[in-house]
Design a protein around this nucleic acid. Structure first.
Lengths: 125, 125
DNA sequence: CGACTCGGTAGCTCTACGCTTACCGTTCAT
DNA sequence: ATGAACGGTAAGCGTAGAGCTACCGAGTCG
């Protein structure tokens, strides 16, 4: 589940693969059609599609001699799940930070970067 | 806006950078603290953090000699926005696909992969 | 049954970039 | 003032991987 999110992000790291991914998001397409609109060769597109398929981000189905690729909702959902987790943590932490900032300002213009306050960066024992 | 999402995804393509990102999601940390828990050197972590900061995914603030890094909610939000767009398209298309699949099955076990049906992969004139 | 289209695979090249060691600036403690 | 901790930067190396050309199998028309 969450492991898929990681793999998916790894795949989308490449700009060209991301472009293909977005094109498939707009409309399902065959390999050749994608290659026509991209600055890379058809085999290159094919390789990217294989990677995306192995990663569970797209699915393919034959249609005559053509292979129609489309996004796999499951894969996209996995990405969303991963991001939602991060998002949650980030928001929670951001709130704490905002509170402390406000507290600092209320306490005056003093520098709070003293040694005694082990704020939030300590490790758990 | 959406351009940030793209850049963000590019950054998170690297597994080590993703690991750092997730660690910062759990708790804001200093460079050295991160390096201790990772199989790479401290300068390497520093470089990754620079990349993440330039990409708008994290922010840093000085605290004594230490630099505390934390996620930038703005950056995470940009990622979410990008993904939401893809998600929307994927769902809409998936619905169309499901409808057609049902229609095909209802029409009998015949193979619909004929040459005349230019289904959904045609370009707009 | 050939001729054609479409796409996946193999083998290779070459660039991008992640990591390391070394060095230096900055800030705090004694 | 001097030493130590912390972290950013420089230069270089080595490898992963993105791209290409060439080839071949699968399916579709005449």
């Amino acid at each position: 589940m969450s492991a898929y999110g990681d793999a998916g992000l790894g795949l989308l790291g490449d700009p060209m693969r991301r472009a293909i991914f977005e094109m498939l998001a707009r409309r399902p397409s065959a390999v050749g059609d994608l290659a026509e609109q991209l600055p890379i060769s058809r085999p290159a597109v094919s390789q990217h599609l294989k990677a995306l398929k192995d990663g569970g981000l797209v699915v393919a189905h034959a249609e005559g001699t053509r292979r129609i690729y489309r996004l796999d909702p499951q894969g996209v959902a996995a990405l969303r799940t991963w991001l939602d987790g991060v998002w949650e943590h980030a928001l929670a932490d951001f709130h704490k930070f905002a509170e402390q900032s406000v507290a600092d300002e209320a306490a005056g213009t003093d520098h709070p970067a003293s040694h005694s306050t082990h704020d939030s960066t300590r490790e758990l024992p």
